[in-house]
């Protein structure tokens, strides 16, 4: 039983803010070594789900387990240390620290010594192609770099799973393509599962082999990108009509 329960697993998660039900029963399983896409229309509950998975939001009912161990009651800090890291929609870098220090902080947060933290930071900066910007203040980075540094900071925790909240928003097509390759490479390079929340379907289809669709706070469907593209329900949820879906998905 336990052996089957590896990975980051959310079971029947409900979240209610007063009378508003943001999540009404989400089952989601993220496995080691995969990139799972989490898509859905605005207001479907994607970001709330990320908050639940990372300890920022307590589930009203339901449970989240990491490799069989419940994450209930752990705050964001302890969830991060347990191995579930996240990036933010608005990168939320430490603006008045240097780029390298941004990553160092996360590496220190995961319990590394200073020297190791610095080495980890430099390796990650190499990987995202920002090694030359290591000494710049994070607040002065251009938009695209900011996003990549945000991802690298999450990975600096050496997590088992990393949750990326709309990393491509506001990027141009070329930046999106580069980002897609970067994200697709995470599982092999860092032995880490990825949950990718994204509006940009080009990125989702390119980076994920499996996609989970949320609609109105519920799990609607899960499967390969091609299956989702062909799924009538998914189209309807996304567009409110079944006729024009193919343009977007």
């Amino acid at each position: 039983m336990l052996a089957q329960d590896g990975g980051l697993h959310a079971r029947d998660v409900h979240v209610a803010f007063g009378g508003l039900k943001a999540l009404k029963g989400v089952d989601l399983k993220l496995r080691q070594g995969e990139v799972l896409g989490l898509i859905g229309p605005n207001g479907a509950g994607k970001t709330t789900m990320v908050n639940v998975l990372t300890g920022f939001q307590a589930a009203t009912t339901g449970d989240v387990t990491l490799d069989g161990r419940s994450l209930k009651g752990l705050g964001p800090r302890n969830v991060a240390r347990a191995g579930v890291a996240r990036s933010f929609q608005a990168a939320r870098l430490f603006r008045d620290l240097t780029v390298r220090q941004n990553l160092e902080v996360a590496a220190i947060g995961s319990g590394r010594k200073r020297k190791e933290a610095r080495a980890k930071a430099d390796a990650l900066l190499d990987w995202i192609g920002c090694a030359d910007k290591a000494a710049m203040l994070a607040g002065s980075l251009p938009y695209g770099d900011e996003r990549r540094v945000g991802i690298a900071r999450a990975l600096a925790l050496s997590p088992k799973f990393v949750l990326l909240d709309e990393p491509a928003s506001g990027m141009n097509d070329q930046e999106c393509d580069e980002l897609m390759l970067l994200i697709a490479g995470i599982p092999d390079k860092f032995a880490c599962g990825v949950l990718l929340i994204e509006h940009n379907m080009q990125v989702v289809m390119g980076a994920c082999r499996r996609v989970h669709v949320l609609d109105n706070g519920k799990s609607l469907a899960e499967g390969t990108p091609a299956e989702m593209r062909a799924n009538d329900e998914v189209r309807r949820a996304y567009l409110g009509s079944k006729n024009t879906g193919s343009q977007v998905i």
Binding site: P76, R77, A80, F88, F94, D96, Q101, I108, R153, A154
Partner: peptide, 20 residues
């Protein structure tokens, strides 16, 4: 000191980075 300055810049992101 570095961790503390990170909390100064963004408390939420600092927590998400494993900082108390």
């Amino acid at each position: 000191g570095l961790a503390l300055r990170a909390t100064r810049e963004d408390e939420v992101a600092a927590r998400a980075s494993g900082i108390s």
